[in-house]
Structures are given as C-alpha cells and as structure tokens.
Simulated assay, not measured.
Amino acid sequence: MASSELKLQVDLPSEHEAGVPADFASVWHTSASFVLDFVAAKSPAKAAVDKTTGAQTGGRVMPARVVSRVRIPPQQVFELARALTQQLDAWERETGRKADGSGARD
C-alpha cells in the first residue's frame, strides 16, 4: 500500500543561505493571508520633529526598512506558531537563557 504522506523537498538557493538580518517583525493580515514584514533599523533613533514647524514633538523616530515580506495562508499560521514555540523552547534549553532576558548569559 502506497503512503499518502506528502514530503517537501526544499531547495535553499545559495544566495539566501546567509539570511537577512532584521531587528523586529511586524505581523498583520488581510482576508486571504497573514503578512510578516521583517524590518531592519537604518540608523539610531532621533528626536521627532514636526515637519511644518521644525519643533521637537517629544517622541523619537527610528528610520527602518522592510528587508523581507512573507505572506502565508491563514491555515499555516498555526503551524508557524507551533514551530516557533518549539524552537524557542529548544533555544532556551540549549542556552540556559530566556527570551525575556532572564537566565544565564553566555
């Protein structure tokens, strides 16, 4: 009897092996997909300035750029959440660190 299990054979092009550094991710959705925008800071934060008056507004602005946008179907969000949780748990066990910054340091 033949197996109906589907296995993916994933190819990672060599130009993508190093990955893309990102400082944070923004997650949002449409009716058809979830969107993950991975963002890298372009320079340190500076005082926010009102463009019309030139006065400082009291806040700060950090210029940033989306370095990668990934769209996934809603059905895959649950699998992604599970995979991230599993990998975070493994990372915490291996490093003795917690994602919240607590725990041992290397």
Rank of each mutant, 00 (worst) to 15 (best):
M1N: 10
M1I: 00
A2K: 02
A2F: 07
S3Q: 06
E5W: 05
E5C: 01
E5T: 08
E5N: 11
L6D: 04
L8D: 06
Q9G: 01
V10L: 08
D11S: 08
D11K: 10
L12H: 11
L12A: 05
P13S: 13
S14T: 04
E15C: 09
E15S: 10
E15G: 06
H16D: 07
E17N: 01
A18T: 06
A18V: 04
G19L: 01
A22G: 00
A22V: 01
A22C: 05
D23I: 10
F24Y: 09
A25Q: 00
S26W: 08
S26E: 02
W28G: 02
H29E: 03
T30S: 07
S31P: 05
A32E: 06
A32N: 09
A32S: 04
S33E: 11
F34M: 05
F34E: 01
V35P: 00
L36R: 08
L36W: 07
D37E: 14
D37K: 08
F38T: 00
F38D: 02
F38M: 05
F38K: 00
V39C: 11
V39R: 08
A41M: 10
K42D: 12
K42I: 10
S43Q: 09
P44F: 04
K46N: 06
A47N: 00
V49R: 05
K51T: 12
K51S: 11
K51C: 05
T52N: 14
T53I: 10
T53W: 10
T53D: 07
A55Y: 12
Q56M: 06
Q56K: 15
Q56S: 11
T57H: 13
T57W: 13
G59E: 10
G59F: 07
G59L: 03
G59C: 08
V61I: 15
M62F: 04
M62T: 15
P63R: 13
P63K: 12
P63V: 06
A64S: 15
A64D: 05
R65D: 14
R65Q: 14
V66N: 07
S68Y: 01
V70Q: 09
V70H: 02
P73F: 15
P73Y: 06
P74I: 08
P74A: 10
P74V: 01
Q75Y: 13
Q76R: 11
Q76E: 15
V77Y: 03
V77Q: 03
E79T: 14
E79I: 12
E79V: 14
E79P: 04
L80D: 13
L80W: 12
A81R: 12
A81H: 10
R82Q: 13
A83S: 15
T85N: 14
Q86R: 08
Q86L: 06
Q87P: 00
Q87T: 07
A90N: 11
A90T: 12
W91A: 11
W91H: 09
T95E: 06
G96W: 13
G96T: 12
R97D: 07
A99V: 06
G101L: 05
G101A: 01
S102V: 04
